[in-house]
């Protein structure tokens, strides 16, 4: 049984259908890649899996760990072990990065964490991601640069340890060094947590150090093609033209 199983998923935003019946299956611990032209519906798929209320599922099912989560609320889906790294992380004035992660961690684990232990873990993860420690006490994402926001997403991934991480263009907007640091962070997640990855990307850098199990191409809200790692190279050479009917 797959960890994530999506069948015939149709999703509408403001009464406009964006996804027209997507199928996707990700096994525990596997690494899948989603590619597709701008506006194809990749982020929409991420938000829909996460149960974001704006994205209405009009048909099909999403199940996770054997449970139907099609109608589940976002917070419950997160607690079940799905994490979405946002393409555009949201600024949250008034709430510090540190207190946000601590609250979230207590929710997903259902346990109180000693402040001292938490701080130590957080500091270690921030160091691994080459983040300035002072960011822990800054308001979440407020005034962070594009790259810093992406790092803050991976920091949350490392702290929350979900069993499935959807990374929506986590690599875009990162400089060369940052791509390397973030890739290392993702590798660390794979190694320590053994979770599955669903990576939405337009580039290949982030995939270099990972064993990719499957590549899915989405065009115009539909599955256009599926294959192994070689599909990534094919797309890099020939573009998406070949899949557009």
């Amino acid at each position: 049984m797959a960890l994530l199983e999506i069948k015939g998923l149709k999703v509408s935003v403001e009464d406009k259908e964006i996804l027209h019946g997507i199928d996707l299956s990700v096994g525990a611990g596997e690494t899948h890649v989603i590619m597709g032209p701008n506006g194809a519906g990749k982020s929409t798929l991420g938000f829909a899996i996460m149960g974001s209320p704006e994205y209405e599922k009009t048909d099909g099912t999403v199940s996770f760990d054997g449970e139907d989560i099609t109608e589940e609320s976002t917070d419950k889906i997160a607690k079940k072990g799905i994490f979405l790294s946002f393409q555009n992380p949201v600024e949250v004035p008034g709430v510090t990065l540190s207190s946000f992660i601590r609250n979230a961690l207590e929710q997903v684990t259902g346990e109180r964490i000693r402040l001292w232990d938490f701080k130590k873990k957080l500091a270690k993860a921030m160091e691994a991601l080459d983040m300035d420690p002072s960011y822990a006490e800054r308001d979440l994402n407020v005034g962070f640069s594009g790259g810093e926001k992406k790092k803050a997403e991976i920091l949350q991934l490392l702290m929350l340890r979900p069993s499935l991480a959807i990374l929506d263009e986590t690599d875009s907007g990162l400089d060369v060094d940052a791509v390397r640091t973030v890739s290392a962070g993702i590798e660390a997640y794979k190694k320590d947590v053994g979770g599955a990855l669903l990576i939405i990307t337009h580039s290949t850098k982030i995939l270099e150090a990972l064993d990719v199990d499957r590549v899915h191409v989405i065009v115009d809200g539909k599955n256009a093609c599926e294959g192994g790692r070689e599909l990534v190279d094919n797309i890099n050479e020939n573009g998406f033209e070949q899949f557009v009917k």
Binding site: S52, S73, T74, Q107
Partner: peptide
């Protein structure tokens, strides 16, 4: 709504 979705996606309820 954006903030709510973002924070909920980390396991926090309303």
């Amino acid at each position: 709504e954006e903030i709510m979705t973002y924070m909920m996606s980390r396991g926090l309820d309303k």
